[in-house]
Design a protein around this nucleic acid. Structure first.
Length: 347
DNA sequence: TCTGGGGTCCTAGGACCC
DNA sequence: TCTGGGGTCCTAGGACCC
């Protein structure tokens, strides 16, 4: 029997959850945003296939979504409902003879030993539909990268297998953006080098790519284009490396005192996270986004308070003190880098 | 045209040390 | 006075993902 990676990806997850409790929305263009009001600052966190037909995309500004699809139903995001649905899905997956690694609310990797991965994929789809009432697509691969790309190509509701044998035939003509780990910036840089397809990137000289993208990142890009990479699926999640909170203001803040109080508030939320998790902070970074979108970060160590929660706010305000708050501010963020857990030293 | 909130990882320059 | 080659830490920025 062979070892396979399956990538299970829920179809239009947040919208599907909304349709479960609002069946009358089925078949309509539906847009779920951070806020339900498309006149306010916020982005699309999920949209139905009917809305996508109008050009609405995840991550798009709500105002732009409304321009593209004025007739869409706009709903506010309800994270608690999505988390409950996610738990149902993950509980269903854990019932299968496989290692299960959650990769966000709406997707998971399965590591399974089987001679019929398609059969397993169909069984997973049926079980998720029966238990949670939701549809998913399943990618099958001999690496995580291939399984991940396969599930995207299988949408909606399909099953697709990608291995070394058919990877380039299927994915080769696609733009590099199709790869898991290549975004719009990297695709644009690749285009300036004349590389416009996955196949072209797979043929690229790793040394030349190292010169252009860095010693590690360059060859890594070529490996991605070949579908290579790890195949391990690990059910245990590593401890978090950071905790953060950020706030975009409904309208820009011109008063530095208000900016300081927003930073203090975010720092207190981070401190509360630290208390819950028992983790220690190493540094605290404050990000200030000036209008329209000019973004800078300053950080400070939390040494004076031994990394405890009480040290977060002073460190955040110290970092903020290094900014000149002479322009309107759109967003502030506070993030704490966590110290490695103080468990038994291993060496 | 306008760009949320929560994260992870990589790069690169300078400081500092041997 | 001019000077190699490595390592690690600190810091800011960038890219990407869900």
């Amino acid at each position: 029997m062979a070892r396979w990676v399956l990538h299970v990806d829920m179809d239009q997850f947040v919208v599907a959850v909304e349709i479960l409790r609002h069946p009358e929305l089925r078949g309509l263009p539906v847009v779920v945003g951070t806020v339900g009001d498309p006149g306010r600052r916020g982005v699309v966190s999920g949209c139905s296939y009917e809305a996508r037909a109008f050009g609405v995309r995840s991550g798009m500004a709500l105002r732009q979504a409304r321009r593209r699809c004025p007739g869409a139903v706009f709903l506010a995001s309800d994270p608690e409902a999505y988390r409950r649905a996610s738990h149902q899905v993950m509980a269903t997956l854990v019932g299968f003879p496989a290692d299960v690694e959650a990769a966000g609310w709406d997707e998971a990797f399965l590591g399974a030993t089987t001679d019929d991965p398609e059969r397993l994929a169909r069984d997973v789809q049926a079980a998720v539909r029966a238990r949670a009432g939701l549809a998913c697509s399943v990618g099958i691969g001999d690496t995580r990268e291939r399984a991940k790309v396969a599930s995207a190509l299988a949408k909606p509701g399909g099953v697709l297998r990608l291995t070394a044998a058919n990877w380039l035939a299927v994915v080769g003509p696609e733009p590099p953006r199709r790869l898991w780990g290549v975004g719009p910036r990297t695709q644009a840089r690749l285009a300036t080098l004349g590389i416009r397809t996955v196949a072209a990137l797979a043929r690229a000289d790793p040394d030349a790519m190292a010169a252009a993208f860095g010693a590690h990142a360059g060859p890594h890009l070529v490996a991605l284009a070949r579908g290579e990479g790890p195949a391990a699926v690990s059910p245990r999640r590593p401890p978090p490396r950071s905790h953060g909170h950020q706030q975009t203001f409904a309208s820009d803040l011109g008063d530095p005192a208000l900016v300081r109080s927003a930073v203090a508030g975010a720092a207190d939320e981070v401190a509360a996270d630290l208390r819950r998790s028992g983790a220690k902070a190493r540094r605290v970074a404050v990000t200030v986004r000036f209008a329209p979108f000019d973004t800078h970060t300053r950080s400070a160590p939390v040494g004076a308070h031994s990394g405890g929660p009480d040290g977060v706010r002073p460190a955040a305000l110290a970092a903020l003190g290094r900014f000149r708050l002479d322009r309107p501010v759109r967003m502030v963020a506070v993030r704490a880098d966590l110290a490695a857990p103080a468990t038994a030293p291993s060496s």
